[in-house]
């Protein structure tokens, strides 16, 4: 049930397809079209860089905040358990709910976000967050971070709480301040959790689909500025890249490329990060 579809996805990418009916053997023609022919090649490159940006910004904002919250929640912080439960709440929500909810919030005319800015005297900052090609993708990534930030928080918190207190006490006795304790003790011992989060974030960023689809439509409005590989893959397999005709060969080729990128990077990443973990 699992091995069969993956292998067939690879096989499918080597055939010609007319709609969803298989034609003759095509060799690498689908890949060639994908990488050199307009508009596929252009869409592919644009989408790829959007996935890369999604990964980078998610690492910085979502996982950075997750680490910060975990540090704040460790130890005898007042209300730590309640905070923990609240921060994790959005993780349980469907991305469809999250997407539509924020679509309403970010509505340029009636949405509460711009109205709140106006109330705060910052009306100049108000803009059509999802309709402006300058801000759409970043806004989307921030909405995604709103939903997910509780996840790295919990993972990092579990890691920090597993650090033996003697280590921290010993460092304190040697005169290390909070900053030094964090950099020299906590962060190195947190390496396994960091590795897990980096790899999961990477896989998530390159499989990204629901939120862009729900909030920006299947073409990644406005004018492909929120197009990602997941959308491109779905469009080509079930709707056509720009034409509206399904193209299974092309879709399978995109799937194979995505699969290779995810597998290679998370595999190499796992090996590299694991090595650092042992040395560190």
């Amino acid at each position: 049930m699992i091995a069969y579809p993956v292998l067939s996805a690879m096989a499918y990418s080597l055939f010609r397809w007319d709609g969803i009916v298989r034609g003759g053997f095509a060799g690498a023609a689908n890949f060639q079209r994908l990488l050199t022919q307009y508009p596929y090649s252009m869409r592919m490159v644009t989408a790829f860089w959007h996935n890369v940006w999604t990964f980078a910004l998610t690492m910085l904002v979502q996982n950075g905040l997750g680490l910060l919250f975990a540090v704040l929640l460790a130890g005898r912080t007042w209300g730590a358990r309640a905070y923990r439960a609240i921060f994790f709440l959005p993780v349980t929500l469907s991305l469809v709910i999250v997407g539509f909810l924020w679509q309403l919030f970010l509505n340029p005319v009636w949405g509460p976000v711009n109205k709140l800015l106006a109330v705060a005297g910052l009306a100049g900052l108000a803009r059509p967050w999802l309709g402006d090609s300058q801000t759409a993708l970043t806004t989307l990534i921030l909405v995604n971070a709103w939903r997910w930030v509780g996840f790295p928080t919990i993972v990092f918190l579990a890691g920090i709480q597993a650090i033996p207190e003697e280590y921290v006490d010993a460092a304190r006795l040697d005169g290390a301040g909070p900053g030094a304790v964090f950099r020299r003790i906590v962060l190195p011992l947190l390496a396994p959790q960091v590795n897990v989060i980096v790899i999961l974030t990477f896989i998530g960023a390159f499989n990204w689909f629901e939120l862009p689809y729900v909030m920006q439509g299947v073409t990644g409005e406005p004018s492909h500025t929120t197009d990602v590989l997941g959308l491109l893959f779905y469009r080509s397999a079930f709707g056509g890249v720009d034409t509206g005709n399904p193209d299974v060969g092309l879709g399978s080729a995109i799937a194979v490329v995505m699969f290779a990128v995810i597998l290679a990077t998370s595999g190499l990443g796992a090996v590299y990060l694991r090595r650092r973990e042992i040395e560190g």
Partner: peptide, 17 residues
């Protein structure tokens, strides 16, 4: 090995199946 496979990328074969 089933955990490692991003099953959504196999949606085309699954659809045809």
């Amino acid at each position: 090995s089933g955990i490692m496979v991003p099953i959504r990328l196999a949606i085309i074969p699954l659809f045809i199946l």
